[in-house]
């Protein structure tokens, strides 16, 4: 599963400081979120698309696969607004369904926004190593180490929890537990799975926390870092590229 997430080649985006990348991407997504201009939104989606398809370093096959959920989110968010959105200049109407120029515009705006979020999110996730991201957040942005290490430790627990889920599924089959149909069955299932898995996970988390303190981890104490992260020339390149990208998209959208 994790092997799937090895890129074909490591592009320049991999060399950017992951914490800086996170902050910049986050800021750009804020712009996307609050923007109400259709043409700017479309050009922004194009910009992020270029980053995603051009510089994530993954093979086209994998990128195409990842595009499926993006396409689904684009169409599902756009379609509802196209068909049921408000608007004056009606193009086509049939019962409740009313397609107007405004609804199409709104739909495209929303669709491009959801595409942008998808592109940026995937580009970020595909081009960082989680552990380096947390180390960089601690070193460059003073994230308290307790948050960073709790995230890192929880990554470690994922395989154990999935394995336990599998065992629980088999155990319930062996015990010949039959669930009711419908909603009640869902509730029964939820209860059957969550109680033992939570009990085990809470105990495990508690033990790991004690073990960490036994290794003299102290909240807020000065510490050194096994993975030193710093700013490099690539961060300058990244900032320049993003600034130029923003300039060009603004120009394409508003230049008359």
């Amino acid at each position: 599963m994790l092997a799937w997430f090895t890129p074909r080649r490591e592009t320049w985006l991999f060399k950017v400081n992951p914490a800086l990348k996170f902050i910049i991407f986050f800021a750009f997504l804020l712009i996307t979120l609050f923007n109400q201009n259709l043409s700017f939104a479309v050009w922004q989606a194009v910009l992020y698309g270029i980053l995603f398809y051009g510089f994530s370093g993954y093979s086209m096959k994998k990128l195409a696969l990842l595009s499926i959920p993006l396409a689904i989110s684009f169409f599902s968010s756009a379609l509802t607004i196209v068909l049921f959105g408000k608007g004056e200049s009606v193009l086509w109407q049939w019962g409740l369904i009313k397609i107007s120029e405004e609804s199409i515009q709104h739909a495209l705006l929303l669709g491009s926004k959801s595409l942008s979020f998808g592109f940026v999110g995937f580009t970020f996730l595909l081009t960082i190593q989680p552990i380096l991201f947390f180390y960089a957040m601690m070193q460059q942005f003073r994230l308290p180490s307790k948050y960073a290490y709790s995230f890192i430790a929880s990554f470690r627990l994922i395989p154990a929890v999935t394995e336990e889920l599998q065992i629980r599924r088999n155990a319930l089959k062996v015990r010949n537990i039959q669930f009711s149909r419908g909603l009640k069955g869902m509730y029964e299932r939820l209860q059957m799975y969550t109680v033992p898995l939570f009990a085990e996970s809470i105990r495990r988390a508690q033990r790991i926390a004690v073990a960490m303190e036994a290794k003299q981890y102290q909240m807020g104490a000065a510490r050194t870092y096994y993975y030193p992260t710093r700013y490099s020339l690539m961060d300058g390149v990244f900032l320049t590229v993003m600034a130029i990208g923003l300039g060009v998209t603004l120009m394409l959208a508003f230049w008359r």
Partner: peptide
């Protein structure tokens, strides 16, 4: 299975050294 907070052998040992504030070059 519940003594480690890191995923790799070297990272786990380094975690202790980080707590002790030992410089990276000595790790």
């Amino acid at each position: 299975d519940t003594q480690f907070c890191m995923s790799y052998v070297d990272e786990e040992l380094a975690f202790v050294l980080e707590n002790l504030n030992i410089p990276r070059s000595d790790m």
